[in-house]
Simulated scan of single mutants.
Amino acid sequence: MLDSLGLDPVEERVYRFLVTTAEAEVTDLVGKLGIDAETAETVLVSMRVRGLVRTVGPGRRRFAVVAPDIVLGSQLLRRQQALDWARREVDRLSEEYRDNARRRDAGRLVEVLPDRGVLRERLDHLQENARREVLSLCRSRAIALPAEENLAEPDALRRGVEYRVVYERTLLEEPGMQANVAYGVKLGEQARAAPCLPVRLTIVDREVAVIPLVQEAGVSEPTAALVRGGQLLEALIALFEGCWERATPLRIAEDGALAEGTRSCPLGSDDLYLVSLLVAGVPDKSIATQLGVSHRTVQRRVSNIMELAGAQTRMQLAWRVATEHWL
Score class of each variant (00 low, 15 high):
290 Q>R: 12
272 L>G: 08
290 Q>L: 11
118 V>T: 12
156 A>L: 14
75 Q>R: 11
106 A>Y: 06
165 V>D: 01
147 A>E: 06
72 L>Q: 05
19 V>D: 06
216 E>S: 15
199 V>D: 09
249 P>F: 11
174 E>F: 02
304 N>R: 15
142 A>Y: 05
38 E>K: 14
216 E>R: 14
59 G>Y: 05
11 E>V: 09
264 S>Q: 06
126 L>K: 00
261 G>L: 01
167 Y>N: 00
144 A>W: 04
131 R>W: 00
150 N>Q: 09
108 R>D: 03
260 E>I: 00
296 R>C: 03
230 G>P: 13
233 L>I: 12
142 A>F: 07
159 R>C: 03
228 R>V: 15
92 R>C: 04
228 R>L: 13
216 E>A: 15
296 R>S: 11
29 L>P: 13
324 E>A: 12
78 R>M: 12
111 E>H: 05
29 L>Y: 03
54 R>D: 08
2 L>R: 09
210 V>F: 02
226 L>S: 04
323 T>E: 08
13 R>K: 15
6 G>N: 06
148 E>I: 04
284 D>K: 10
25 E>H: 11
216 E>C: 12
255 D>R: 04
276 S>V: 00
137 L>Y: 02
173 E>L: 08
155 D>S: 15
70 I>N: 09
162 E>F: 13
22 A>L: 15
140 S>T: 05
218 G>P: 06
137 L>M: 01
150 N>P: 04
143 I>S: 10
66 V>R: 07
268 G>R: 03
274 L>K: 10
150 N>K: 02
10 V>Y: 14
1 M>Y: 07
180 N>Y: 11
84 D>F: 06
10 V>D: 10
239 L>M: 04
102 R>V: 03
208 V>M: 07
119 L>G: 02
244 W>I: 00
122 R>S: 04
229 G>D: 15
186 K>P: 02
128 E>F: 00
89 E>G: 04
151 L>R: 14
108 R>V: 07
225 A>N: 10
56 V>S: 09
105 D>V: 14
44 L>G: 08
69 D>P: 13
187 L>A: 05
257 A>W: 00
299 Q>S: 14
102 R>Y: 02
135 L>R: 09
13 R>H: 13
288 A>F: 07
119 L>A: 13
247 A>F: 06
24 A>S: 13
55 T>Q: 13
8 D>K: 10
326 W>F: 01
147 A>R: 06
313 T>A: 07
283 P>V: 12
39 T>L: 15
162 E>W: 14
15 Y>E: 03
74 S>I: 07
77 L>N: 06
200 R>G: 15
278 L>N: 02
90 V>F: 10
218 G>A: 10
24 A>N: 12
197 L>Y: 00
186 K>W: 01
260 E>L: 00
132 R>T: 08
103 R>V: 01
64 A>I: 12
115 D>Y: 03
149 E>A: 12
45 V>H: 03
130 A>N: 02
238 A>P: 06
49 V>A: 11
42 T>F: 03
197 L>W: 02
132 R>Q: 08
262 T>V: 09
176 G>L: 00
137 L>I: 00
194 A>H: 07
98 R>T: 07
65 V>T: 12
44 L>F: 01
26 V>W: 09
154 P>N: 13
178 Q>E: 02
238 A>L: 11
263 R>W: 08
176 G>D: 03
81 Q>F: 07
326 W>Q: 09
109 L>S: 15
103 R>W: 05
55 T>H: 04
3 D>T: 13
